[in-house]
Design a protein around this nucleic acid. Sequence first.
RNA 1: GGAGAGAUGGCUGAGUGGUCGAAAGCGCUCCCCUGCUAAGGGAGUAUACUUCAAAAGGGUAUCGAGGGUUCGAAUCCCUCUCUCUCCGCCA
Length: 422
Amino acid sequence: MLDINFIRDNREIVKKGMINKGEKNADAVDAVLEKDEEWRNLVTKVGNLRAESNNRAKQIGQLMGQGKKDEAEKIINETGRTKETIKSLEKSLEAIQKERDDLLYQIPNVPDESVPVGHTEEDNVVFSTWGEPNEEEWRLPHWELAADKKWIDFDRGSKVAGAGFPFYVGHMARLQRALINYFLNEAIENGYTEIQTPYFVNEASARGTGQIPDKEDMMYTVPRDGFFAIPTAEVPVTNFHRDEIFEMDNLPVYYTAYTPCWRREAGSYGADVRGLNRLHQFDKVELVKFVHPDHSDSELESLREYAESLLQKLKLPYRTLLMCTGDMGFTQTKKYDLEVWSPGQKKWLEVSSCSNFASFQARRMQLRFRNEKGKTEIMHTLNGSGLALPRVVAAILETYQTEAGDLEVPEVLVPYMGTEKV
RNA sequence: GGAGAGAUGGCUGAGUGGUCGAAAGCGCUCCCCUGCUAAGGGAGUAUACUUCAAAAGGGUAUCGAGGGUUCGAAUCCCUCUCUCUCCGCCA
């Protein structure tokens, strides 16, 4: 959510950002300012009325204290309509505030100036590439190798839970665990604090990071208890500090968390969901940063560089995309996607997404810090995957398979796998 | 799941209808005093919104959350959430 004052002062910039992101109703910007005007007028009015009635109540209190009951009665009788007037104005105030906020929630974050303007994924810019994409014809897609070796059991997963909930068996289970440990250890060495989070969150938390009202359908729910299965660790980790005020010297704060992630992925189909490409449950190590507003730009670059370093150490060729305005999402000011090369499928697979939310999430969650003047100020948040497992596993299976049908273990994972080849 | 107790500012904790946004203590900040350390004295110290060009200063709201009673609610009533104790169940 944007600051209403920012919108007031930057009406055209906000509108332009909205159009560039492909949002249709840029009129919401004018509408929200109008509503806000209305709201502020009414707030003043209600405030004055309440001040009046508070004054009267105080007088009555004084008179009662002095035993002047008659005079007090007099004033009580005078109060008459004020109370009802206040009540009805409060009702409209509430209604107007809701209308204003509903509009405010429809206004996306403003893209950073460095973000290319565009409408589709075609307009994303290749920011950098690393390694040589392998084009050898004999390489099998990961699902074929995994089926041969009985490493990933999609059929039994379907039987036991449903499509998109595979079993990982034997070496694959261990590979998953190896990756999780490796990613966590790397993050810790790079200054992130590991945390373990709840896998279910309440509605307030889902709202805090913007899953509600925007992306409600992506989450699995537990209606009986009012829970949402987390679609990413971003939700519990960012909400960890919801409604808190940091001392400035304590920023930045970095967290890393491994969690399973659950996503309904309604509407996906075809090659997209083949094998490990898209699952309903998958594992991910997430990175979250809470930072001073002056530093979020550079923090995004260091976040991206860190995520890239993981792929480099795994020796998996990848490319980094700078997402265009139309493909970056509602809440971000700037976003990089890391795509690993899948030699069995001959295509790029997204394994990380590093985003700067600036104050957008933090404002909604009232994440603040005390600045040098001692005033509270909204901080900035960022997050990125470091990394999402299934497609990394896919890339490893396809990149490290030998023509003889074995799988070599990436060097950095050998200590975790206990073997160089499986 | 059953029974009971509770939730007040950064912390401890007082306050059971009337100048209470809230005593006192601790902590923290600034100043004074004091030739180390320690101690002492004074002032200040919540958040959000709003008014204002801005600062200063006003105003409103907030004592777990929401609703109600009342001229007036931290205080009374209702609902919910959370914490603690006991019983039950249990990885």
